[in-house]
Amino acid sequence: MSEPFDPARWRPAAFLPERDVRDPALIFAIAVLCFLACLTALGVIAGDRAAHGWSGQLKGEATVIVRARGGETPDAAAARAAETLAGVPGVSEARALEKEKAYDLIRPWLGDVTDLEDLPVPRLVAVSLDRKRPATATVLQEALKAQGVDAVVDDHQIWIKDIRRAAGVVRLSGASIFLLIALAAAAVVAFATRAGLAARRDVVQVLHLAGAEDNQIANLFELRFARVAAISGALGAIAAALTGALLRLIGGGAGITPALPIAWLDLLAVLPCPLLAAIVAVVAARLTARRLIQDL
């Protein structure tokens, strides 16, 4: 038996059902894809930062191999080279490395030779370059030549090119994966919206035949699915932010690993997700509602 009904207290009910048995599954599917999209976005940002860091580190350094000439000892030649380079504009610091460092570098080829003193092992000078205006290899080479130092300057260009290429691949792959997942998420939102609308064809038909304008009908579905998509997007974004935070915490100050550093601020990248999901749902709902109305 129905409850006593007082028309004076009646308030119009929503044209669309408040709840739908399909909603939980729909929210779960969209949330998972939004989670993956957000996580990929965080990965892309961290990867970009890592790639930037790698090339930045290499760009800020140069290594000079110094060979002793005439009666000069290798150590004296290295010291003179370091002194010369320290005075070159664009150089922050030049430091002659201990001979043990040079021995360590050639030990893999010569084996564990106990006495290397008799060999003419070149010495190394580590040069830190000014980050803003780094001196070029040519400038360094000419400065050394002017002082009569026999040396070869390695500004790591060959490595920088490789690193740049690797960084580009990382960025491109990350961006592509993000784009794919974001598109998949958008497609699922659109598909789910269409399916939901098709399931409510009866409502569309009744409203249409009772004289509702197309916009009136489309607005109902837009709001309905925008809300579902926004909730899903928020859940996916929160889950991704929590995962990012966890990785940041586990990885310590450098993030999950020095190779993929996640910063706290990166987590803000997930913020647009609910809005974007809602926008996709609104567009899909509008297009689908109009098509459904036309097909009636």
């Binding site: 009904f5 028309p7 009646w10 119009p12 009910a13 044209f15 669309l16 059902p17 009866d202 409502v203 009744v206 409203l207 009772a210 004289g211 509702a212 009136q216």
Partner: peptide
Amino acid sequence: LDHLSAFDNAALPLRI
């Protein structure tokens, strides 16, 4: 419309 009460169903054209 099955999710609307009889009153809501009857009032539908007026609401629209």
